[in-house]
Simulated assay, not measured.
Amino acid sequence: MRIGELAARTDTSPRLLRYYEEQGLIVPDRAANGYREYDDRLVDRVMQIRGLLDAGLPTRIIRQILPCLDQPRAIHFSDATPEMISTLEHELDRMTARIRCLTRNRDAISGYLAAVRGR
């Protein structure tokens, strides 16, 4: 697919997709005419990148943990600096707290809808 289609499917601007490419977060193929060609699997990858960015992780750390999202996994422990480990531990705690909050909110909305529909 072309960059415009990937942009539409991920609700991400083409400019941001090119930035992800510059940062080594996604790697498109090149057609004979030089145009970028994006594999369907990059839709999920872009969504994962956006989620990690929304969680506050910088692209340099996202680049290091992307192998954890792949199967088979190719994790390079030599890349793990104390700063990176500390940042990831902090972000993991933030995500866990956010998940708990979202779960409570989802349950409250579900309960409200059940009560409203039950009338």
Rank of each mutant, 00 (worst) to 15 (best):
M1T: 05
R2V: 05
E5I: 01
A8T: 02
A8R: 13
T10I: 03
T12I: 10
T12G: 09
S13T: 14
S13H: 04
R15C: 07
L16K: 06
L17R: 00
L17S: 04
R18P: 09
R18Q: 07
E22K: 04
Q23D: 12
Q23N: 11
L25T: 09
I26K: 03
I26Q: 06
I26G: 06
I26C: 04
V27G: 12
P28T: 04
R30Q: 10
R30S: 08
N33K: 04
G34C: 11
Y35A: 15
Y35N: 15
Y35D: 15
R36S: 13
R36T: 08
R36G: 13
E37L: 14
D39R: 09
D39H: 12
D40P: 15
D40V: 03
R41A: 14
R41D: 15
L42V: 04
R45W: 10
R45S: 15
V46E: 14
M47G: 06
M47V: 09
R50F: 08
L52G: 02
L52S: 03
D54N: 02
G56N: 08
L57H: 01
R60E: 09
I62L: 12
P67I: 07
P67F: 10
P67S: 08
P67Q: 13
C68H: 11
L69W: 06
D70N: 05
Q71C: 08
P72S: 09
P72R: 08
A74V: 08
S78M: 10
S78C: 07
A80F: 12
E83C: 00
M84H: 03
L88K: 03
L88H: 04
L88I: 10
E89N: 11
E89G: 01
H90G: 02
R94K: 11
T96Y: 10
A97H: 04
R98T: 08
L102I: 05
L102E: 08
L102N: 07
T103G: 01
T103S: 07
R104N: 11
N105P: 01
N105C: 05
D107K: 00
A108E: 13
I109F: 06
S110I: 02
G111T: 02
Y112K: 02
L113V: 01
A114D: 15
V116W: 12
R117N: 07
G118P: 00
